[in-house]
Design a protein around this nucleic acid. Structure first.
Length: 476
DNA sequence: ATGTGC
């Protein structure tokens, strides 16, 4: 197989040299260091995405890109409604996996003496681990309510405040969810998982704001130096996983009937005009609402822990909640014309610029906050959307550090116990239910977040606002 | 990512 090659077109922008079958241009954003370490497989997958029918503009790989299922992770692909397709693998297994950041009134000195106990309290309050339920059990009709109403369901049940909803994409509720196309199996898996963290790279992290890059934006977002904040990274658990599994199989089985010959069966997709695409989008939005409700319930549990542990934690408002695995209809300008496109973002975060109509009024002057989760033990970032990202990446930015090696490789290379001890030496408390899980998430298994953010900013996809340093990380 | 997989 030919090794894909890149041609540099800007300081942080590279064009994939055309490979047979490609129908659209593919671009990679990244500095020299990131680009020289990219997996050939991820680039091959990017070329495969660029071979799909009905693409608008170019296909993008963000600086945190790496191999995924079908589509690489850290990928943006926009489809025209007429000829385009939707791909379940283009959204990924963890539908609407995402990050939210909660702001406290506390400073590092307030929490520092209590970090081990705090980590223990958070670990106890939020169920975590593979396959774990223990969230609140939902009756069939309550589950329908979750799937239709997302975070608004949780708020109506007393989990969090109404103000939270305007700090979540789409007001905390994705329109067009269709619970009737979510399989009984998916419902069964999700029934007991609302308010649970999961495993893998999902986490609850107590962080301190240790560096400001843009004082006006930081202030506008309610951030101050030395402030303690909490990051929550999780998704739609077994429910979303089952929706993805169900539709990947269905799309793969139906592909020949739709005249789709795919370079990789994992690219399984359906024409946007088909019944399968309609059903997938309805089920995907239902799973996305489950993810939003999940993060909302977890945020409530976190607030309860902080409220009990610290007198001055404050109401802990939400900075912003983003999903980084979705396919959503959005208006974009392509070739000088405005059109409605279905934008796949897999391991990619929407990053709306100042003045964008989808932003709530209080953020319109600043642009959308873009929480970027680092790997365990390394910094996270808050970025802000900028105008240039609309034409360059369909208004998208990186979602995290991005893996450098597979989970299997990481497990061979690193030992969980040694990592926990060494991070403790650096002042970071890790509380995890699984030491092998910690090894899979070793900081050394991920790219350098500083380089990823520098490339994201350098490429004009978002602007750095603040850096967050981890204090305590709770994982499944 | 995931009731984890050759």
């Amino acid at each position: 197989m030919t090794t894909p090659t890149l041609t540099q077109t800007g300081e942080y922008e590279w064009r994939l040299d055309p490979l047979p079958g490609m129908r659209a241009e593919a671009v990679v954003f990244g500095g020299r260091e990131i680009v020289s370490n990219l997996e050939a497989h991820a680039l091959r997958q990017l070329a495969n995405v660029a071979s799909l029918p009905g693409l608008a503009g170019r296909v993008c790989a963000l600086p945190d890109t790496h191999s995924g299922y079908g589509f690489p992770i850290g990928c943006v692909a926009a489809m025209r409604p007429g000829k385009g397709v939707v791909s379940a693998g283009g959204v990924g297994f963890d539908i609407a996996c995402g990050v939210r950041t909660l702001l406290t009134n506390l400073s590092e000195e307030d929490v520092h003496p209590h970090l081990p106990e705090l980590a223990e309290l958070l670990f106890a309050a939020v169920p975590s681990g593979t396959g774990r339920g223990g969230g609140f059990g939902l009756s069939p009709s309550a589950l329908d309510d979750v799937l239709m109403n997302g975070a608004a369901f949780a708020v109506a049940k007393g989990y969090g405040a109404r103000e939270d909803l305007e700090r979540i994409e789409e007001g905390g509720r994705f329109e067009g969810a269709d619970p009737s196309v979510v399989s009984a199996e998916a419902r069964k898996r999700g029934q007991d998982q609302l308010g649970t963290l999961g495993s893998g790279n999902h986490y609850l992290e107590v962080q301190v704001m240790d560096k400001v890059f843009d004082a006006r934006l930081a202030d506008g977002f309610g951030l101050f130096p030395g402030q303690v904040v909490v990051g929550v990274h999780c998704g739609s658990r077994g429910l979303g996983h089952q929706v993805a599994t169900d539709f990947m199989a269905r799309m793969r089985a139906e592909a020949p009937r739709h005249g789709l010959s795919l370079p990789d069966p994992d690219l399984a997709c359906a024409p946007l005009a088909s019944e399968t695409a309609l059903a997938y989008l309805g089920a995907m939005r239902a799973a996305a609402n489950f993810a939003l409700a999940n993060r909302q319930v977890i945020a409530h549990l976190v607030r309860t822990v902080f409220g009990g542990a610290f007198r001055d934690a404050g109401p802990m408002p939400l900075l912003w909640d983003v999903s980084h695995n979705l396919c959503l209809p959005e208006e974009h300008r392509v070739g000088g014309r405005s059109m409605r496109l279905f934008v796949h973002r897999k391991g990619a975060t929407r990053a709306l610029p100042p003045g964008h109509p989808a932003l709530p009024r209080h953020l319109s002057r600043f642009g959308q906050p873009v929480p970027v989760g680092g790997s365990m033990g390394t910094a996270s970032y808050i970025l802000a959307g900028v105008a240039t990202s609309m034409e360059r990446s369909f208004g998208s930015a990186c979602h995290g550090a991005g893996r450098l090696m597979s989970r299997g490789q990481a497990k061979k290379r690193f030992k969980g116990r040694a990592l926990v001890d060494s991070l403790r030496g650096q002042g970071v408390v890790i509380r995890s239910g699984s030491l092998s899980g910690v090894a899979e998430e070793a900081p050394g298994a991920y790219k350098d977040i500083e380089a990823v953010v520098a490339a994201t900013q350098g490429a004009g996809l978002a602007k750095a606002v603040a850096r967050l340093r981890p204090l305590a990380c709770v994982k499944g």
